[in-house]
């Protein structure tokens, strides 16, 4: 599998749209196009192999299931994961003759994507730093009371940052990366220590993704109980995710009602605050 210039340019365009300060906006850009699962679909369509794209995207999605960027610090850059990592992993898989459907294929894809994603943080800081220049233009506009220029500053000029830090790196890496992948394959045999390590890392890395997520919701050790409860449901009883979500919703509802009962019995005045209004419509 090779990547043509045209395909690389399309990938570069999607890389500019996704990412944290991406030009698609955070809902459509970062949280939709930037997710590796969606990136897998897009790359699959561009490279003409939807099934492989989705499989690679699925494997990488686990690692980045909760890419939280508290206070604007990133541990990985989604434009690099989804639009450099996925295409290169697809090339690597076809070059190794592996199917993404196998555990080995998924592990290779994961470690590939994560490597690229971590390197991609450079792109994130590059974009954010260059945006400072446009923001400088913005402050001038506020001073001179040319407020309409702000729209240009917020939604137009950052395209230049993305041309330099999303589009060009993606095009170059996708175009040259395919050769590098081939070189790696020739120098590193699959049963050697390096490749074994790479595959093993690929299967362990999703744990970090899940742990980042747990950091958001676990405040004490007892908060691990719901997590393990869900874990056991799937691992020991083989309950699928939709069913697990419904069971979880039932528990969440009970929990909420218990809490609300406590509120209404203990803190009458505080609860009253919410309902003493007579607001009007727009």
């Amino acid at each position: 599998m090779t990547i043509s210039w045209f395909q690389a340019i399309l990938l570069g365009l999607f890389a500019s749209l996704s990412s944290m300060p991406g030009m698609g906006g955070s809902s459509i850009g970062n949280y939709t196009l930037g997710r590796p699962l969606v990136g897998g679909l897009v790359c699959g369509i561009i490279l003409g192999d939807i099934a492989s794209g989705i499989l690679v995207g699925t494997a990488m999605q686990i690692v980045y299931i909760a890419l939280v960027t508290p206070g604007g610090t990133v541990s990985a850059d989604v434009r690099a994961v989804s639009y450099i990592g996925i295409p290169l992993a697809m090339v690597a898989l076809s070059s190794y003759g592996l199917s993404a459907d196998t555990t080995e294929g998924a592990a290779l894809a994961t470690s590939f994507g994560t490597m690229v994603g971590t390197l991609g943080t450079v792109l994130f800081y590059g974009t954010a730093t260059l945006n400072l220049a446009w923001q400088h233009v913005g402050w001038r506009a506020v001073e001179e009371r040319k407020f309409h220029r702000l729209y240009m500053v917020d939604m137009g000029l950052p395209w230049i940052s993305h041309l330099l830090f999303s589009f060009i790196p993606t095009v170059i890496m996708c175009k040259l990366g395919a050769n590098v992948v081939d070189a790696i394959k020739n120098y590193l045999p699959m049963d050697g220590i390096a490749m074994k390590t790479l595959f093993t890392v690929g299967s362990i890395l999703p744990c970090v993704g899940i742990a980042i997520l747990l950091k958001q919701i676990v405040r004490s050790y007892t908060d691990f109980v719901p997590f393990l409860f869900g874990f056991v449901f799937a691992a020991a009883l083989g309950v699928n995710l939709v069913c697990a979500t419904i069971i979880a919703a039932m528990f969440a509802m009970l929990f909420y009602q218990i809490k609300m009962n406590q509120l209404t019995t203990n803190a009458q005045p505080a609860a009253d605050d919410f309902y003493d209004d007579d607001e009007e419509d727009i």
Binding site: P206, L213, P226, G230, F233, V239, K259, D273
Partner: peptide, 27 residues
């Protein structure tokens, strides 16, 4: 506020369980 906090806690129970199931299924 307090009502929001109850809702939030309930949702994190939901989230915790689903994430558990996701981990067991996918990792």
């Amino acid at each position: 506020g307090a009502q929001g906090e109850a809702l939030r806690d309930a949702i994190s129970v939901l989230g915790g369980m689903v994430i558990g199931a996701v981990s067991a299924t996918w990792v």
